[in-house]
Design a binder for these strands. Sequence first.
DNA 1: CTGTTAGCGCATTCAT
DNA 2: ATGAATGCGCTAACAG
Lengths: 344, 344
Amino acid sequence: MQKPSSPPTLAEVARKARVGTTTVSRVINGGERVSPRTLKRVQAVIEQLGYMPNQAARILKGERAKTIGLVIPSIADSFFASCAEAAQAIARANDSLLMVTVTGNDPHMELENLNHLMRHRTDGILLSPANSQSDTLADFLRRMNIPIVAFDRPLSNSGIPSVLADNFNGARIATAHLISHGYRRILCLGGEPTLYTLRERLRGYHQAMQENGLAPLVDMSVKDYKSAEYAIESSLATAQPPEAIFTLKNSTTIYAFETLQKLKVPIPRSVALLGYDDFELAATLRPAISVIQQPIEDIGRIAAEILFENLAVHGTPKSPAARRPQDEIRLETKLVLRHSCGCR
Amino acid sequence: MQKPSSPPTLAEVARKARVGTTTVSRVINGGERVSPRTLKRVQAVIEQLGYMPNQAARILKGERAKTIGLVIPSIADSFFASCAEAAQAIARANDSLLMVTVTGNDPHMELENLNHLMRHRTDGILLSPANSQSDTLADFLRRMNIPIVAFDRPLSNSGIPSVLADNFNGARIATAHLISHGYRRILCLGGEPTLYTLRERLRGYHQAMQENGLAPLVDMSVKDYKSAEYAIESSLATAQPPEAIFTLKNSTTIYAFETLQKLKVPIPRSVALLGYDDFELAATLRPAISVIQQPIEDIGRIAAEILFENLAVHGTPKSPAARRPQDEIRLETKLVLRHSCGCR
DNA sequence: CTGTTAGCGCATTCAT
DNA sequence: ATGAATGCGCTAACAG
């Protein structure tokens, strides 16, 4: 034997089966135009040798790579983990592998990751952009010339389709609900005001407050537990302490809950709490936390589905032009009423 | 222009820079043996054309694919998500992409995933086997002839190195701790007894009970909240109800907590609770849940590090033989005492 | 320092 | 129904 360490090639199969390489190629691609006899024989050799087509060679021949890239801030974050799981399922259904890269919301890393994916000639990319306004990114993506779908966060002026939750409306509804409880001083708590989702939610909060003639009360300085605790303590110490807190994201909600629990401030009697984004134990905590719930799996799934749709037309000789009903799909969020907001 | 849609090739760069392909190749591979003048010129053209080497062609030439595969039961599971994040970081540090596939603990899917990864000529694989005893899997992996590292769960009789938490000892310590509180009837609650980790933990529980001359009390029928509730209610209704519950995994711990909370059984006064595996809000629940904590990120990180070490020697002409200090790395777990076990 | 050339494994004309 | 030959993009001999 020559190279026992490297996988068998199509040519080896052909030789061993005493046929031409073309025939073997036909066999592994559906077995059309091959006589039943040779078909069986070739398949036997394939089985025996444990032959597996070399995808790299296929790519070089101009076929699809059968991989898609997923570019996200973090895998450990449960939101993106769920998106990734959904995307993986769709990729799998389309006979493709999912390549996952993480950016940590760093535009530089993001570019590097995209570059890396392009070198591997990925068929398409699912992206949650670190910066929704970046023209650099938009330009770069345009140059890539492959189907891309943004999710959770859009990419402005890019022509790239996006799948989003309706952050604005979710936050508006949430705030309106708190107002309907009679609270007037509602503190909006969050961090990372550069992120699209957070800005949208903040906008929704402002909208609801304004609609009801209430003065907004915002603190976007929350980065970790410490800063949350500080923000809440400061706020509580004012002459006009908040009657309710609306937290803009998962971790902030938890920090707020922990702080109030530590300060022995009864929820919702002294201060009500409502958070954007649900989390596993929200219903188990006492009181159970009311939240805005987003269709997380849907976001990942739909984004991946759109990507593969675009992939299909991408390969078509003359793309059927107007196959893009919507450039921005906005998924509805749901207000989940538990007890922390004051509901019974 | 010919094909404005396909990425520029090395040859195009060469033509435009008026040099041979070899020179361009040298430039993109470090720029050795190229005069500063031509180097600059070629780099300029590369920049201008936005040239990116085609990894598929490199693979075909016999180079490393610069991808590693991660085969796990689920991405949404926080344990595996953290492992994935750690593995991604190491892959990235080694200039490689991470391909993630999920098995749902289904051996069939697992095989398919591995096959798929092999077609793409992945350099190596990180695997959390669905079945630690599977000879089919072990044989298959041997045939693949690429570096593989198992993590969280080993693969018996496979010669494949593994990175594990010390499940047995963790569970033993945990049980011993409950015993030290004076509890004698300790219910061990769990599910999926086919999984290596769960079996090991169960073994640790038995060991501790036996060491102390106590009769084991086990229910491995927990699959979801309903079954957990049923198991606990039944157990509580006996003549000799348990004084403490030791749960074998995350979700079971939460189900148990919820059930006890719903039944208004005071923890730990009536029944103490201690769970294997920590979770985000364990310290926030009231009472705070005592748990066994495993070094999750370490498991993923070390597994990936070992994989790349093996990758390095794999490419070496004559592998330095004995570069494998341990075939099984067992990481220590930690008992985190909060209040649910009876500690103050 | 630089260019020519020969494959890597496969799908694909184009013959037969 | 089958096969021989060509080329995808790149690296590595091997000249010069």
